[in-house]
């Protein structure tokens, strides 16, 4: 694979040990070839990047097109005419602000609570020997493989019996822990060095102190990564809020935006403008934690 050949050029700041510039490579290869290879690599990557972004770019431009321009032939990427009407109208057509708040509360609290519970469970599974660990682990793996659609109807029935349908707690509570999260963090915790906590244990620290004071701070990148995972998953989830809430007021953004996808009339401009506004927090979240992100996953292979 030619790609590995163009390894370190020393141009950028190396971000990991694997990239550290190697003197021997520099000595052996003529400078021109390396420069050409770097350029080729840059161009290819940017082209791939643009291609990957195409639907999102289209979405952005479409949000600024008048509806008649969107549905006209031949299609263009760049708007023939710019308008902000969709961004204004979306607030009138659906209770957008309310949906935004709901979605923040839903995705935000699910993320935070789930991180807490997932990590507690993962700590027990990775660090505390106990009888029945194998059984719990199998259960978690089994649940990881369970399609959400399987339990949707019985779960709805149950929450309905509890009077929790159509409420935010009803949306949040079943999501307060997550098999993937437990699995992910267990793998991460297993890879952490044990000497720090052994020392603490010898000093008589409680398990809670070790978990909260040593393991959690060490796991910050993994927690942020999983946080992004939980946040985007719940922020974007459509079926769950759609089925759980019968009124748009207790629903979330994706379910609200689905209102623009009529059978006869899809309002593309409104849908795209609304989706764009709805995407911002997730992208912001990602950009904020981007640095920790790769590090967060770095040590989380399967052991």
């Amino acid at each position: 694979m030619a790609i590995t050949a163009t390894r370190p050029t020393g141009a950028g700041k190396p971000t990991g040990p694997g990239e550290a510039s190697t003197a021997s490579a520099r000595r052996r290869r003529p400078v021109n070839t390396r420069r050409a290879a770097t350029w080729l690599l840059a161009i290819t990557s940017i082209a791939i990047g643009l291609l990957m972004l195409l639907p999102i770019i289209w979405m952005v431009f479409t949000a600024f097109k008048p509806e008649s321009d969107i549905v006209s032939a031949p299609p263009t990427l760049w708007p023939r005419e710019l308008t902000l009407e969709h961004f204004v109208e979306v607030w009138d057509r659906i209770p957008f602000a309310r949906l935004y708040v709901n979605t923040i509360v839903f995705a935000g609290s699910v993320t935070i609570i789930s991180l807490l519970f997932d990590s507690m469970a993962a700590y027990a599974l990775a660090r505390l020997p106990f009888k029945g660990r194998a059984v719990v682990m199998v259960l978690i793996l089994l649940l990881l493989m369970l399609p959400f659609q399987v339990t949707l109807i019985p779960l709805y029935d149950m929450l309905n019996g509890l009077g929790l349908t159509n409420t935010l707690p009803g949306l949040i509570i079943p999501r307060m822990t997550n098999a993937f999260g437990i699995f992910f963090l267990t793998q991460f915790f297993l890879s952490l060095p044990k000497d720090l906590e052994e020392a603490a244990r010898v000093d008589g620290a409680s398990e809670w102190r070790i978990y909260w004071g040593i393991i959690m701070p060490l796991s910050r990148p993994a927690l942020l990564t999983l946080g992004l995972f939980h946040f985007q998953y719940n922020w974007n989830d459509l079926l769950w809020p759609l089925v759980m809430s019968s009124s748009v007021e207790t629903s979330t953004l994706p379910a609200g935006l689905a209102l623009f996808m009529g059978q006869h009339v899809v309002e593309y401009g409104l849908l795209m403008a609304g989706s764009l506004l709805a995407m911002l927090p997730v992208i912001l979240f990602f950009l904020l934690i981007q640095r920790s992100f790769v590090a967060g996953i770095a040590t989380t292979g399967l052991k």
Partner: peptide, 13 residues
């Protein structure tokens, strides 16, 4: 977050 969720839920549903 929980507290907020509680409030919002009661209000509407």
């Amino acid at each position: 977050g929980l507290a907020l969720a509680g409030c919002t839920g009661q209000g509407s549903g």
